[in-house]
Amino acid sequence: MAQQVRGVVARAKGEPVRTETIVVPDPGPGEAVVRVQACGVCHTDLHYREGGINDDFPFLLGHEAAGVVESVGDGVTEVAPGDFVVLNWRAVCGECRACRRGRPWYCFATHNAAQPMTLTDGTPLTTALGIGAFAEKTLVAAGQCTKVDPSASPTAAGLLGCGVMAGLGAALNTGEVGRGDSVAVIGCGGVGSAAVAGARLAGASKIIAIDLDDRKLASARTFGATHLINSGTTDPVEAVRDLTGGCGADVVIDAVGRPETYRQAFYARDLAGTVVLVGVPTPGMELELPLPDVFGRGGALKSSWYGDCLPSRDFPMLIGLYLQGRLDLDAFVTETIPLDGVEDAFARMHKGDVLRSVVVL
């Protein structure tokens, strides 16, 4: 029987979000209903509200979440009612050319729930990244549920659903940071700070944090940065070279995603070094680089999709590190807020006042 619950809805571009009653249908084949316990407030949710993703309003926002499976549809074997899960927006298909080649983290046919959630008048809701977790309950594809250790805090575990996983994976998976490597991270918000933490986990010997905001730089130090550069007062490329014997860093991670920061990343890396783009560019951005420099500097220029993660592999492993005290996910949580506090949290996030606001239900 369909259920009515509260959820945060963006009805039109730029309008403040509202907490409204939404209808969650019973799960169909391959689907699951999850009782949401916590959901982080991510920049992507704000992009949806601002029309920066598409114009398929109204949106049910929220996607960085953890909760408990309440019910499942026919054919679901991955999870069962009562399982504690982290939600992910890349439920792999197992059948596309990437999956068949043993690279499911690149899956080209990820999927979501087939049924829509709706407003009480029957209007279908477009769910943020196929999840819609600023809600007391949400309907997702069962493959979007990754079972993890239930002793983990939902406020911390849910952050693996997007930004923190993107940053950790940019260092661990895409950048393949190794023991003794030098790493520079440009942009030290939630994703960049997670990249710093990932580089520390990988055993990097030198981790250089770069940002315009001294508050974010101070936060990056708590996650493992060994050196801090304020790019508003110092040329970051020259500073990285000075800190690496004039060579540049082995891996440079751009967690901003702008042409100017990408150029900084490109020229701040060592010969044969790696650039990882994990910050998401906005439509219309273009990049120009001298082709002889691209050839002559060698190495690799990589884009990191969701930290190139495989949720079934990475989420349980990272939760294990969290429970062992080796990965401080709690440190990413600046504040916890109620469901009706999302609009105010957007304002604080836009000002750079928080690393992560987390809705607790």
Rank of each mutant, 00 (worst) to 15 (best):
M317E: 15
S71A: 12
K13P: 05
V148I: 06
F223T: 12
D340I: 00
I22P: 02
Q264E: 06
D270H: 15
L125C: 02
V177F: 01
V9Y: 00
L289C: 08
G279A: 07
D330W: 01
G52D: 08
G187Q: 14
G298L: 04
I131G: 03
A32D: 00
A249N: 15
G94M: 03
A135D: 14
I22M: 03
V92G: 09
A135Y: 04
F346R: 07
L310P: 06
E78L: 15
C145G: 06
D121R: 08
G248T: 09
C42K: 04
H47T: 08
E286I: 13
A113C: 12
S71D: 08
L125A: 03
P316Q: 11
V251W: 06
V9C: 03
V294R: 12
G130W: 11
C188P: 03
T120W: 12
G14Q: 11
G7D: 09
Q144M: 10
A10H: 08
A133S: 14
V333R: 07
G279C: 07
K13C: 11
G51I: 06
G94N: 03
A202I: 03
G187I: 10
P316G: 13
V9F: 04
E20K: 07
G298S: 10
D55A: 15
A345K: 00
A209P: 07
A197M: 01
V9R: 03
N230V: 07
A184N: 10
T155Y: 02
D250Q: 11
R90Y: 08
L277Q: 09
V333S: 06
D56W: 10
E335N: 13
E260V: 10
G73S: 01
T44N: 07
V354Q: 01
G352K: 11
A199Q: 01
G245Q: 00
R215N: 12
G62K: 02
G320L: 05
G198K: 02
I208S: 08
D214T: 03
V34C: 14
R313E: 13
G341K: 07
E20Y: 07
M349A: 07
G143I: 00
S182P: 11
G169C: 06
T120C: 01
S151I: 03
I337Q: 01
A272L: 15
G94V: 01
V276Y: 05
